[in-house]
Design a protein around this nucleic acid. Structure first.
Lengths: 348, 348
DNA sequence: TTGTACGCGTTATCAG
DNA sequence: CTGATAACGCGTACAA
């Protein structure tokens, strides 16, 4: 087992100074062709590579970006990561991940660990708990130390930083418009409680579409689920509620759900009640997941372009990292990613 | 914007030496209570945190582990990551990810980037291309430099390192045994080409179960798909093949598929041909995915316990990292994770 | 053409 | 009780 070789070892071996080795490896013209040749041959033989940590310390730059997400076993977030990784690698950066597991304290701890020199900047999506507590001091402290942050998807306007978000409002509005154009008159909404901004915006989009079409929204057609509960429990409760809803309002002919599982639950309940999708009820979900594509019938969805969000976030962050702010005033931008309605079998 | 504070700045500010500050922060009894108090107060005020990079350089230890996987938008791999992250964080390590995207060269490049000081060890699963080319020099070189590697899932015996694998053979055997116990006599196998070891082992398990039950395997009931193709194309071809298979062998009453999508495709084709699952055909898949749980009918699967694999891999790696090998001889172990048959609606 | 000295931030050792 | 020094590995301005 041969340890990684360093400049110092090469220097000792070849009986030259460390800096000569360093320069020779960079083909500096200060060094004689002879020495260069000798050093490079030796370096290649022993497979010399500069130590990243030493470079990071010296340059005060790690070429690593940190990404903190609430959950990784989730198609949306893993697609975002892929986008980040793609761009980061292309631009010479590594990606280090931290999971908050939807917990405020884990988010803080993770950020503190990474902020102490390990990375050059953050890409993150807020945990539900943080969203609930509305305590954003850790973001501001991090940014005050000169560490840039780009937030995506779950965002609040109180925090001044670059952001990448989905056009939740118009995505929802277009989806509901689609249902209306498809002759749906009684469209139910299955959403989450309002504290997650994306849920709120999608609800607004739903309402707006109805109003534009002179349809009076009915509160009874709106189901607001508490998604802080365990998923299994939550889904069972959801199905029961949907069943009740469908039974109480037999004229429901369309459903817009703010995520994939809600939409699937709606289809499941519909089937159980002997209703055909899309003939009796048309369903649209909001997601980037796999379930939609492979469900029966396959689900029409509003695609969020998660990977693109990751790519844009990474580009924004790296741009910021590599910009020198002594010259110009710092400016934050919010990139809005347009959604796309992917039509499948659950709509006509 | 106040930059992160360092020992040097505290020292200058308080007019003491750097080493005094360092010691005071560690409550060294060499330092007077007075000074300790003063230094710690100042440090707290300015929220001093030691710089990880400097510590890494000094200690020659990064407290970071690298994980390299072929793909992250994949439930199995993201669950593994979650397991790794869980254990790593608990034991004081960060996780840095690299995606090989199933490509040999990206795997090599990623490993080289991380191996130059950024991490203390690797957890990885081989890319398909590496498996095909059977070129393992980068693994061996990395280990020769004293950087430990733990491989999981996709593994080859030629490489001497710690491994975490699923008991593919028995998982498959038990699944097929289940079908046989459920009165299936003509069981089809949908698998991948043999170069991925897990596919091979699952095929062997299938054959073994048949033989133990005195059922003669029929080559015509075995579909070997080439999964190096693009998924969409591949799945369409697969469905066509399955349809042909079902039509040619109307007596097929069971299907064992080595992954989730293959199993779902089988169910889809069955439905299209007017066959009922599980009444006419029972189906079992091999996976940890979400599709199984939410498909209709939901799919009976062999669970791989992906998260547990990640946890075990992380523990193995960190144990190795933290063991001093001057004392004892290095030993490699292979942890085998038992599978579990999760029974759902696609079997009786 | 080559080598010395310094600094990145930290800690350990040793001297005062 | 406090401070100077060296070391981790590298790159570079400056000196020889």
């Amino acid at each position: 087992m041969k340890r990684k070789i360093t400049l110092k070892q090469i220097a000792r071996e070849l009986d030259v100074s460390i800096s000569t080795v360093s320069k020779a490896l960079k083909n500096s013209k200060e060094i004689s062709a002879d020495t260069i040749q000798k050093v490079q041959a030796f370096a290649k033989l022993y497979n010399y590579r500069p130590n990243n940590i030493a470079l990071s310390l010296k340059n005060r730059k790690t070429n690593t970006i940190g990404i903190i997400i609430p959950e990784i076993v989730h198609h949306f977030f893993s697609k975002v990561i892929r986008g980040v990784e793609l761009v980061a690698n292309k631009r010479g950066y590594n990606v280090i991940i931290g999971l908050s597991n939807e917990s405020f304290s884990k988010e803080v701890i993770n950020m503190e660990m990474l902020a102490n020199g390990s990375i050059d900047g953050f890409i993150l999506s807020m945990s539900k708990e943080t969203l609930l507590q509305q305590d954003y001091h850790h973001y501001n402290e991090t940014m005050n130390q000169g560490m840039p942050i780009v937030m995506f998807d779950r965002v609040v306007s109180d925090i001044k930083c670059d952001k990448v978000i989905v056009d939740d409002f118009n995505g929802a509005k277009n989806a509901v418009q689609k249902l209306i154009s498809n002759q749906c008159n009684h469209i139910a909404l299955i959403t989450t409680k309002d504290y997650v901004s994306v849920g709120r915006l999608r609800t607004q989009g739903y309402l707006e579409a109805l109003e534009e079409n002179k349809i009076t929204p009915q509160a009874e057609l709106i189901l607001k689920m508490d998604d802080t509960l365990d998923y299994e429990v939550h889904l069972e409760a959801l199905e029961a509620e949907i069943e009740q809803l469908f039974k109480a309002h037999k004229n429901i002919d369309g459903v817009f759900a703010v995520n994939e599982l809600y939409a699937l639950s709606a289809m499941k309940v519909a089937r159980r009640l002997g209703l055909n999708v899309p003939d009796d009820i048309q369903v649209i979900g909001f997601t980037d997941g796999v379930l939609s594509k492979h469900s029966t019938p396959s689900l029409t969805t509003v695609s969020q372009h998660a990977q693109l969000m990751g790519e844009r976030a990474a580009d924004l962050l790296i741009d910021k990292i590599e910009t020198d702010f002594d010259t110009e005033e710092e400016q934050f931008q919010t990139v809005v990613i347009n959604t796309e309605l992917v039509e499948r079998e659950s709509t006509k």
